Amino acid sequence: MAVVTITKDNFEAEVLGCKIPVVLDFWAEWCEPCKMQSTVIEELAAELDGKVKFGKVNVDEEASLALNYQIMSIPTLVVMHYGLFQGKAIGVQGKDAIREMLQGVL
């Protein structure tokens, strides 16, 4: 499954209504660490296809979503399951760290 672009318009359907865990990657175009994180997210999206949905939230374009999840630094990953907040990690995360974040929801 490809990484989905998440906006305030599709947030309810793509995240809150999703039956599998969702990892939200809060990022910005100008953020170099976010670009490093993006590579890891793309690889995990391919590996965990059908088990986990990965979405990217551009904090410059979707400031209200960033505010709702109290995103103060980027990149930040937020794990959601059945529309409920499950965890958050700030800074670039490796595959193992992201898998560990997902252990409780898989």
Rank of each mutant, 00 (worst) to 15 (best):
residue 52 V to A: 06
residue 17 G to E: 03
residue 15 V to P: 04
residue 47 E to M: 13
residue 68 N to T: 09
residue 42 E to S: 12
residue 95 K to A: 14
residue 5 T to F: 04
residue 66 A to R: 14
residue 58 N to W: 02
residue 4 V to C: 11
residue 71 I to W: 08
residue 95 K to H: 14
residue 105 V to H: 15
residue 25 D to K: 09
residue 67 L to C: 12
residue 34 C to G: 11
residue 98 I to G: 13
residue 14 E to D: 03
residue 77 L to V: 12
residue 30 W to V: 03
residue 35 K to F: 06
residue 47 E to W: 09
residue 36 M to I: 06
residue 21 P to T: 00
residue 32 E to F: 10
residue 73 S to L: 15
residue 67 L to I: 03
residue 106 L to G: 15
residue 11 F to D: 01
residue 59 V to P: 04
residue 52 V to K: 07
residue 22 V to G: 08
residue 84 L to D: 11
residue 15 V to T: 01
residue 82 Y to T: 09
residue 33 P to V: 00
residue 94 G to Y: 02
residue 100 E to N: 14
residue 19 K to F: 03
residue 100 E to T: 13
residue 6 I to E: 03
residue 50 G to V: 01
residue 16 L to S: 11
residue 72 M to Y: 04
residue 67 L to E: 03
residue 5 T to Q: 13
residue 89 A to H: 10
residue 73 S to M: 12
residue 41 I to D: 00
residue 105 V to Q: 14
residue 87 G to K: 08
residue 52 V to F: 04
residue 65 L to P: 03
residue 86 Q to W: 07
residue 54 F to T: 03
residue 101 M to Q: 11
residue 78 V to M: 11
residue 75 P to F: 02
residue 69 Y to S: 13
residue 59 V to F: 08
residue 74 I to M: 04
residue 101 M to S: 14
residue 78 V to R: 15
residue 39 T to Q: 09
residue 29 E to R: 14
residue 29 E to L: 11
residue 2 A to I: 00
residue 9 D to C: 05
residue 84 L to T: 12
residue 95 K to R: 15
residue 70 Q to G: 08
residue 4 V to F: 03
residue 45 A to I: 04
residue 100 E to D: 11
residue 31 C to A: 02
residue 24 L to D: 00
residue 20 I to F: 00
residue 7 T to W: 05
residue 39 T to S: 08
residue 5 T to I: 07
residue 35 K to A: 06
residue 74 I to A: 09
residue 21 P to I: 00
residue 44 L to D: 01
residue 60 D to I: 00
residue 54 F to D: 02
residue 62 E to D: 03
residue 100 E to H: 12
residue 75 P to V: 01
residue 71 I to R: 11
residue 68 N to S: 14
residue 90 I to D: 05
residue 62 E to C: 10
residue 40 V to Q: 07
residue 13 A to H: 09
residue 95 K to W: 07
